[in-house]
Design a protein around this nucleic acid. Structure first.
Lengths: 193, 193
DNA sequence: TTACTTGATTAATGTTACAATATTCAAAAT
DNA sequence: ATTTTGAATATTGTAACATTAATCAAGTAA
């Protein structure tokens, strides 16, 4: 049929991607840089991604010291806890969670792919980029430019990234992928209120 | 004159600019970066120009980011909210998680009764005893001398403590129990490594 | 009704292409 | 011997392109 058969047609005013809806909430430019510095620069600019999976802050500032009381005890013991069941000591969150402050940064998690590891949407994880990742570690990695927090595992000679959520499939790393480990997740914090 | 008039001609084998004779002594690549970071990045890579006298130690490039620069970028104001939202990149764990330091203490959790709230065995929760507990809050309470961390709920006029794990039953509070609220759980931290 | 599908529209993003500049070589001219 | 000229080839900033992504509304299905 030689026919005008528009089916879903019509003008869409206002359609199209919105301005500054990209990774950085602003426009971008192309620049030329020395090859050996490309990955440094990419590590730097991911901090400023706003609409992506994660947003990253640095911790290389003056860390406050705020030792407060820590009570250790067994909660659902089922039986009444005698007084000696908990002991008291001082704890400072920065000291407790950060070993290498120069190499540490924070990543806010979006999504539920690590929920079985107790990492929930909107949690902040602590990443130490000075540690070398071993299997069994939860790591921040990039795969073909996408950042992800996953459990590093190995199947024979192949590395795998395992999500902690049945809804997501393991990712097997192969040579055709651009794969980079950015650091080891050493902790997580969550705010309820 | 229709003439073959080669004057200075001839093959020049080996002629041409030499490889890696550029600014950086190495090849370059084109990358795309957010506009507001271009000058940062250029300040960074200028250090690696081979003819440049300035020899800055290999210090992390992020550390060269001065508060002054940051302020500069905010002024042009061409961009609406995103820049504004992210101007505060500092994060201090103590500040982030603790509002009332005089009234705050930590409790290490043993057991899995709050696992569905993302509180796992061996986690440390942050408790603020200055906050009054409302239904929906996760609280630290003692029942007949036993400490527990649970979700505070209400069924008609009766308060209940709900565990976040199907394996455990809700606890209904009644007058015969010695019941005391010690504080509201305002956060949780976990160490993986 | 409501939700999904489709195509139109426009921005983002990574890469390639290109033009202008810079460097090097050697033949030709002086 | 020195300078001039043009060929050869790399650098470097920017433009252009193709692909992807996001958004909107009409059409379709439930």
């Amino acid at each position: 049929m030689i026919k005008n058969k528009k089916q879903h047609g019509g003008l869409r005013i206002g359609a199209g991607r919105k301005l500054h809806s990209g990774l950085y909430g602003e426009s971008t430019k192309v620049i030329r840089v020395p090859t050996s510095k490309v990955s440094d620069i990419q590590k730097y600019i991911i901090q400023f991604q706003v609409n992506n999976v994660i947003d990253v802050s640095k911790s290389n500032f003056l860390l406050t010291h705020q030792p407060l009381d820590l009570f250790e005890y067994k909660v659902p013991a089922g039986f009444p806890s005698p007084a000696e069941d908990y002991k008291e000591k001082k704890l400072d969150l920065n000291e407790y969670l950060i070993k290498q402050k120069e190499a540490t940064f924070f990543v806010r998690i979006k999504g539920d792919s690590m929920i079985d590891a107790g990492i929930h949407d909107n949690d902040i994880v602590i990443v130490d980029k000075s540690q070398t990742a071993s299997t069994g570690d939860i790591i921040l990695a990039s795969i073909d430019g996408d950042f992800t927090v996953k459990l590093l595992s190995r199947n024979k000679s192949k590395y795998q990234l395992l999500p902690a959520n049945e809804k997501y499939k393991p990712i097997e790393i192969n040579e055709s992928m651009q794969f980079e480990v950015w650091g080891v997740v050493t902790g997580a914090v969550r705010k309820f209120k």
